[in-house]
Simulated scan of single mutants.
Amino acid sequence: MSCNRYTLIQEKNRVIHSDARLLYLSTAKYGGDWHSLPHTHDFTELFFVIGGSGQFSIENELYPVHVGDLFVINPNVEHTETSLNAQPLEYIVLGVENLQLFLQNEQDDRFCVVHFQNHMEDLLFYLRTMQREIETKPAGYEMVCQDFLDILVIQLMRQTKFSAALIPLNRRSSHICALVRRYIDNHYKEEITLEHLAQITHVSKYHVVHIFSKEYGISPISYLAMRRIEESRQLLTTTDFSLSYIAHTLGFSSSSYFSQAFRKLEGVSPTEYRRTHKQQKAEQSSASKA
């Protein structure tokens, strides 16, 4: 009888790749009607070029890309891609949170590019399998895709000088909260829903509410209302705009809802607040003349 036993040796400081979570997989082929604009994400994107050629613009610098190239764009790095019209760029991209990839001994950890022309079949096998799972959604497809992501990252590290680093969850949560808050501050006059906030942060709306409330002690929708009320106080005291105009301008669905939200935060109605302010201003003016 012959028997062989192989014991797994757990390496110290081993990166646990399952902490990195696949957010999405998408395929794209450049066309004349596609105009990509510079943008950033708070997660890592892996672009694997499967057709055509073009350029990646990364923080205003251009880098050529060809079939078999893998571009890794780490979080918060401004980027976009362009295509050569004669050879439309085609790629598969993965969005992955909680993970950064960078090349060893490279000082620039914002992004990296690796040429995988000799290993295209291997990488395409993993990517196409993940794509098929996501498209057909059989039972357990999320787990299968996550497992294939872990295998893909390990294969990348084996075949190159890639190193991986996990992004602490608390740092990612703080970044998401700051992104939501900044978005509300810049767009509070527009219609904003939890679904929209979830879309721009790539997490569920329930997770957005949970981490935002934990970070700031207030829900995103309550913060939105507070931000609108802050602006309404300025309009009430410096203009003669009607309540309906102010409500509409600041994104409230109606003047009655505006009044309700204002009273909840300020303890008085908008009309009472305006009248009180005018009385105080008139009294101060009389006092100064006396």
Rank of each mutant, 00 (worst) to 15 (best):
R5W: 07
R5Y: 11
K12T: 12
V15A: 03
I16E: 06
H17Y: 06
A20G: 03
R21L: 09
L22I: 05
Y24Q: 10
L25P: 03
A28N: 09
L37G: 02
T40Y: 08
F43C: 02
F48S: 03
V49P: 00
G54Y: 04
L62R: 14
P64R: 03
H66S: 13
G68D: 04
N74L: 04
P75T: 02
N76A: 11
T80C: 14
S83P: 04
Y91N: 06
Y91K: 01
G95F: 09
V96S: 07
E97H: 02
L99M: 11
Q107D: 08
D109P: 02
D109E: 12
N118R: 13
D122C: 09
E133T: 14
E135K: 15
G140Y: 12
M143S: 13
C145T: 13
A165T: 13
N170H: 13
N170E: 11
R171P: 04
H175C: 14
Y183V: 01
T193Q: 06
L197C: 03
I200N: 02
T201N: 15
H202I: 03
K205D: 11
K205R: 15
K205P: 02
Y206A: 14
A225C: 12
M226Y: 04
R227D: 15
R227G: 14
Q234S: 09
L235M: 06
T237P: 09
S244Q: 12
I246D: 01
L250M: 03
L265K: 01
S269W: 12
Y273W: 05
K281W: 09
E283T: 05
S285E: 09
S286G: 12
S286F: 12
S288I: 15
A290M: 14
